[in-house]
């Protein structure tokens, strides 16, 4: 499974080279885009002529900033553009601040991709409801790209997206294109500013705006745990089953391969068994404080 993915193809010899899962591959920032006051997107390419980066939506990479440290960051890019690795993150910690200082041409280390992603296969032929809070849209954007690339393979699709303020809503420049290609997008903010004409309130209130049938649909949720909790309740209120609702979990992570022990969540290793779980698998754990 994952071990197969931690290989890179050498473009010159066309040989698949196994890589020690703890060794970052040298990479270079090709482009950097500021998304808002604390969020930015990096487009990254492998050094040394190594290409062919494949991943599943929902998987993550470990990003290493020279001499500073390493953090797990989900992949926010398009699976079809395998020459670029795309990450969107906020500068909120020591390492992510280091990432925020990188500019085109700077180097960093990457290993991955790791983890179990969103259930794209089982979503085929079904309605899909995607619920994101703030930066939580980043790991879900590859899902949207994959749906758009094979739109007829999926039923009706809605994106419910909430953030603190209009400025915190990510990727808004793409929403119109997504809508044109048949994805319903409902945006909401906790606090509006003078320019905001949209909805104000928590993202869970958007669930009632979904006009298509949610029984038998697939749900995908990424956001703060409290938002996940209320969203699951809302989706269950529309008679969705716990094993049709998938959530992305977050814990401290040092290794991403099950060696360091940091990401344990009850019996689960978030890095290896997740980060995406069917909700009924972790429901028992979700109710436990400080787990």
């Amino acid at each position: 499974m994952n071990a197969v993915l931690t290989q890179v193809r050498d473009n010159r010899s066309n040989k698949i080279e196994p890589v020690d899962p703890m060794t970052p591959a040298p990479c270079r920032v090709m482009r950097r885009r500021r998304e808002n006051h604390d969020t930015f997107t990096l487009e990254i390419a492998h050094e040394n002529g190594l290409v062919g980066f494949e991943f599943q939506p929902g998987q993550f990479n470990m990003l290493y900033v020279h001499g500073v440290g390493e953090v797990p960051i989900s992949i926010s890019g398009d699976f079809r553009k395998s020459d670029r690795i795309i990450h969107t993150t906020r500068d909120v910690g020591t390492v992510t601040r280091g990432l925020a200082r990188l500019r085109a041409g700077d180097t960093l280390g990457i290993r991955g991709p790791f983890g179990v992603g969103w259930p794209m296969r089982s979503a085929e032929g079904r309605n899909v409801v995607i619920v994101a809070g703030g930066i939580g849209l980043a790991p879900l954007r590859p899902v949207i790209y994959q749906i758009l690339a094979a739109r007829s393979h999926f039923g009706q699709v809605a994106l419910l997206y909430g953030a603190r303020t209009p400025e915190d809503l990510l990727f808004r420049r793409e929403f119109n294109a997504w809508r044109r290609k048949g994805i319903v997008v409902h945006e909401t903010v906790d606090r509006a500013d003078g320019s905001w004409r949209g909805h104000v309130g928590v993202v869970t209130a958007m669930i009632q705006k979904v006009e298509f049938e949610l029984v038998g649909a697939i749900g995908m949720i990424c956001g703060p745990e409290v938002m996940i909790r209320f969203t699951v309740n809302g989706l269950r209120g529309r008679n969705m089953a716990g094993n049709d609702i998938y959530v992305s979990m977050e814990r401290n992570m040092k290794c991403a391969v099950g060696f360091c022990g940091h990401c344990q969540y009850g019996p689960e290793f978030i890095c290896r068994d997740g980060p995406v779980f069917p909700y009924d698998r972790i429901e028992r754990l979700f109710a436990i404080r400080e787990l």
């Binding site: 020279h66 440290g69 040092k254 060696f259 360091c260 022990g261 940091h262």
Partner: peptide, 10 residues
């Protein structure tokens, strides 16, 4: 007990 962390230095 197998847990570990990583220390980065320059």
């Amino acid at each position: 007990c197998f847990c570990s962390t990583i220390e980065d230095t320059t």
